[in-house]
């Protein structure tokens, strides 16, 4: 296939993506880049435009402006060729309740043009990956919510697409299933590329390589998880004292740049970049009988970033 893309590793390249509904701008010039082998966490409060963006990326909604390339193929000019590279699990899994799991997945691979000889293998593999091995002959309508969710994931990955787009895939799953699905998404991120929309922030920190936060239709944050962790880890500590001194005294400690209360008798100390005064802190609190009971590095979590940007 001729690939006009400038970067062959890019599976999704979206530029200036805008969608208006009448006067309301749901998505405003969003830039989105996804590379092979990458898992992108797509975050944002409800109504931020995540689902609209995903609908556009999967060809279910035409953008008002902008361009989308899937593996180098223009989605708007050649939709069927481009869609063959995509697997999509929408927010509400599109399940036919009166089909069995096997029938449904077979239909999915047929529609995604998997060659006849490989269909059976593809269905079996998708079932195995999603833990559906023993429910193949059951009607989808009779399955529990968790199983139905997994059938939804299975139909999105059965044809081995280059891009997997999952809109809140772990909703309704129990903790064990969530672990399995997370492992599966990580595995998919190896050979394919994944966009994962979710509200569960630890999930993003656990499995994504990169994160984009959307708010009021625009991307307000875009960085790698590694960078996020590197910036914020170790620069602050959480200190708990039974008999705390004054804030000023804490702030005067060597290497401490700022102090803020983080709860009852709990303090968050911002540290200077090149110093680690933990040892001195412990020594000082023993010496002055402050009653130290808690000392831990305060990670500025994704949650902090999220809340700061979207509130």
């Amino acid at each position: 296939m001729s690939s006009p893309s400038s970067d062959p590793a890019a599976t999704i390249h979206a530029q200036g993506l805008t969608r208006r509904f009448g006067a309301h701008v749901a998505v405003a010039s969003v830039q989105l880049e996804l590379n092979r082998g990458e898992v992108l966490g797509f975050l944002g409060p409800n109504g931020a435009g995540k689902t609209t963006t995903m609908q556009m990326l999967t060809g279910n909604l035409a953008p008002t402006e902008g361009e989308i390339r899937i593996c180098g193929v223009d989605l708007l000019a050649r939709p069927t060729t481009a869609k063959a590279h995509i697997g999509y699990l929408p927010e509400n899994p599109p399940l036919y309740r009166d089909l069995t799991v096997d029938e449904y997945l077979t239909l999915a691979v047929k529609l995604h043009r998997v060659a006849k000889a490989q269909r059976r293998v593809a269905v079996a593999r998708a079932k195995e990956r999603c833990g559906l091995g023993d429910v193949g002959r059951k009607l989808i309508g009779t399955l529990s919510k968790g199983y139905q969710q997994r059938v939804g994931i299975a139909q999105a990955i059965a044809h081995e697409p280059d891009v997997v787009i999952l809109d809140e895939p772990t909703v309704g799953l129990d903790p064990n299933q969530i672990r399995d699905i997370r492992a599966l998404i990580r595995e998919l991120g190896g050979a394919h590329s994944v966009i994962l929309s979710t509200h569960i922030l630890p999930e993003v920190e656990a499995i994504c390589d990169r994160v984009q936060i959307m708010h009021h239709g625009s991307i307000v944050y875009s960085d790698t998880i590694a960078a996020l962790k590197a910036i914020h880890t170790g620069r602050a500590v959480l200190l708990g004292l039974r008999r705390p001194p004054s804030d000023a005294e804490l702030a005067a400690l060597p290497g401490v740049t700022a102090v803020e209360a983080a709860g009852d008798k709990l303090y968050r100390l911002q540290l200077a970049a090149d110093r680690d005064p933990t040892e001195q802190l412990v020594a000082r609190s023993v010496e002055k009988n402050w009653g130290l009971y808690h000392l831990a590095p305060a990670q500025t979590s994704l949650e902090d970033v999220f809340v700061n940007l979207t509130r």
Partner: peptide, 11 residues
């Protein structure tokens, strides 16, 4: 039933 997406997402 929002199953139309199944067809419209397929190539």
């Amino acid at each position: 039933n929002q199953t139309m997406v199944f067809l419209t997402s397929a190539p």
